[in-house]
Computed example of a mutant assay.
Amino acid sequence: MSLQVPVVDISAYVAGGTPDERTACARAMDAACRTVGFVQVTGHGVPQAVTEGLAGAMDDLFGLDLETKKSWRTPPEVNRGYSPPKSESLSLSLGVESASRMKDFFEAFNVGASQATYPHAPGLPQPDYAENTWPAVPGFRAAVEAYYAEAARVARTLTGVFADALDLPTTFFADITGHSLDVLRMNNYALPPGEVELDGDLTGMGEHTDYGIVTVLWADQVAGLQILGTDGGWHDVVPADGALLVNLGDVTTRLTNEHWLSTLHRVKPPVVDGRIQRRRSCAFFHDGDVDAVVGVLPTCLAPGEEPKYLPVTVGEHVAAKLRGSRAGLVNTAADREAARVLAARG
């Protein structure tokens, strides 16, 4: 059975739509978040020239030799810089043991919000708001910063849609994202022959949920991304023409007591003629303030319904996830997400 990812046009929030148009958009978003947790977002207003600039910058970086790229690597606790192939295992962020441990073959480069991004909030903890490591690649920083600004705008627009869809105060998400832990992760799935064994267990990026409030994803229209449906099966998802893929993170699932879904997803790029077909993606993670306490919203509890999660700060939650994916330590605080992974594997 195929799974259809809903398409939601957010132009009413981007270009100043009428109240009725905004209401229709919020209702469509609510339906998508309750049933799938992934959305094809159109009307986002990101110029094509900006995404083309991002793609070119990624090509310039990832086309360099591995040793050069490794010079921009940071320690696991610093979520910045270069991550080589097979240095991470996203399934460990869920507390799911992996026989081969750090096995995900994608390579990545991360930039994010630093203390300098939020001069109005001095004394932010490190390395949560670490300074960025910029590679010596001509034009890279300018192209990436241009896209980062657009993705951040889209993410904050989406939280405005979310507030209306959940019947929350207009400023609800703004109040917990004034110094949000935002990260832009550029991913490349392409390795030369001989680097990996092309077998049935090949993993581009292991099954995982995203950590924060919302993720805005630009990606090539190449097969590989799969999401877990309510039927227990994995389904292929490819961005529609001109669309950004948007999915919810664990913070939103906690707030809504799982009425909105942080959908499990993974990447299994196709192998063509014995080689991995190249695929690029770039995810903007809008996670929330490091010190924001997130718990189940009373308005998201039906009569007699109990909260499925205890309150936790965004920083504590994200740190546990990163200890799994980047440092190889099983996350013991993700039992509900881990159960979904194990059920799908079964």
Rank of each mutant, 00 (worst) to 15 (best):
V144N: 01
D164F: 11
F162V: 09
Y147N: 04
E150Q: 15
S180P: 13
V183A: 09
F173T: 01
A151Q: 11
L158Q: 03
A149V: 02
D167V: 13
P135Y: 13
A155G: 06
V154R: 07
Y147W: 01
A136T: 15
P135G: 07
R156Y: 06
A149G: 10
A143V: 10
A165S: 14
D182P: 04
A146S: 12
Y148R: 13
V137N: 02
A152D: 10
A146P: 14
G160P: 08
E150G: 05
T157W: 06
E150N: 07
V161A: 00
R141V: 14
E150K: 04
L166G: 03
A146N: 07
D182I: 02
P169H: 00
W134T: 01
E145S: 04
R156Q: 13
F172Y: 13
V144K: 00
F140N: 00
A151T: 03
V183L: 14
A163F: 03
A143T: 05
T170C: 11
S180N: 11
V161L: 10
R141E: 15
D182A: 13
F162I: 06
V183N: 10
W134S: 07
E145N: 08
A143H: 03
T157R: 09
A142Y: 09
A152F: 05
A165I: 07
A151V: 08
A174F: 09
R153H: 07
V137W: 12
E145C: 03
G160T: 02
V154S: 04
A136C: 14
L168W: 14
F162A: 06
G139C: 08
F173L: 07
Y147L: 14
A143F: 03
R141N: 11
E150P: 12
Y148V: 07
E131T: 13
W134Y: 07
F140C: 03
T157D: 01
G160F: 00
V161C: 11
T157N: 06
G139D: 07
D175A: 08
T170I: 09
V183G: 01
A163N: 05
H179M: 05
T133F: 11
D164R: 15
A149T: 13
S180Q: 08
A142M: 10
V161Q: 04
I176C: 12
F140A: 01
T133G: 02
E131A: 14
E131N: 14
P138R: 10
P138M: 03
A152I: 07
T133I: 13
P135N: 06
I176Y: 04
D164N: 12
T170R: 15
T133Y: 12
Y148T: 02
A174Y: 09
V183R: 14
L181K: 00
R153F: 08
S180A: 06
A136Y: 12
T171I: 11
T177R: 04
